[in-house]
């Protein structure tokens, strides 16, 4: 068992509110880790800490054994942590292709003078990035929509594009924040198969935040349960399902657990 990502006593305060408290968890290479918990449990905050959008109040984050807390989000992304957002954050005015290229650009080496003067080196890199990004889009059957504005896509296609854009970073770890939000059960089942395919195809490690219990149970190798920023349970899907503390946390709020 080798840890790809590890947090040690990770804490984040918002004023008096402790959104994440003393959280120590690890993500193994190649697994799909489900993260569940009632609304406001701190799941999204955890992602924001892992991707550097917020600095932790205290505690450590290790990615491939190296501390990443305090690095800029772009640097963390370049090291191989990609994510999607709970409320889709595409570059709406830009085309589908441009959305993917922006993520792919982090793999391109091209200095500002090269770019400003459009040197042969810069032009070669441009062609490369177009081809690679198109290839990725074709793979996800979004190729025919490449020149459409991202904001004009259907909801489902936008969700999918956000995942493709994250994959264009060539990540080792993919963080998905409620990818099935707003989907009906049959769409969620399709997404389940889709994510399983992505996980294998790109040899990824995935952390999945999701409220659709069926989906989390079906996909996850392990599940961690958060409530009020602390870990209240964790383990194999079946163990978590029957855990009284988990049921209580959910029944206390919305009772969504099947």
């Amino acid at each position: 068992m080798s840890g790809l990502l590890e947090t040690r006593r990770l804490t984040r305060q918002f004023g008096g509110l402790r959104a994440i408290g003393d959280l120590s968890l690890s993500v193994n290479r190649g697994e799909i880790l489900g993260v569940i918990g009632p609304n406001g449990a701190g799941k999204t905050t955890l992602f924001n800490l892992l991707t550097g959008i917020y600095p932790p109040s205290s505690g450590e984050i290790l990615f491939e054994g190296l501390p990443i807390a305090g690095l800029r989000p772009s640097e963390i992304a370049r090291r191989g942590v990609a994510r999607t957002f709970q409320n889709i954050r595409l570059f709406r005015q830009l085309t589908v292709l441009e959305n993917v290229r922006i993520a792919y650009d982090s793999q391109i080496v091209c200095s500002p003078p090269d770019a400003l003067l459009s040197t042969p080196h810069a032009r070669l890199r441009e062609k490369e990035s177009i081809n690679a990004s198109m290839e990725l889009l074709e793979l996800f059957e979004l190729g025919s929509l490449a020149e459409n504005r991202a904001g004009d896509l259907s909801y489902g296609a936008q969700r999918r594009l956000e995942i493709v854009r994250a994959l264009a970073l060539d990540p080792k770890l993919l963080l998905l924040d409620e990818p099935a939000a707003g989907m009906n059960p049959s769409e969620a089942m399709q997404l389940t198969d889709f994510l399983r395919w992505v996980h294998g195809k790109f040899s990824l490690t995935i952390v999945l935040i999701e409220h659709h219990m069926q989906m989390v149970m079906a996909l996850s190798d392990r599940i961690e349960v958060l409530d009020f920023g602390v870990r209240i349970a964790g383990g194999k899907p079946d163990e978590v399902k029957g855990n009284p503390r988990v049921i209580e946390a959910y029944l206390g709020t919305e009772g969504e657990l099947p």
């Binding site: 992304a77 990609a82 595409l90 570059f91 709406r92 290229r101 650009d105």
Partner: peptide
């Protein structure tokens, strides 16, 4: 493209490696 991404969504731009 990074400059346009900043206009569209600065947080997403950083998270996508810009």
């Amino acid at each position: 493209r990074g400059i346009a991404a900043i206009r569209e969504d600065e947080i997403a731009a950083e998270a996508m490696g810009v």
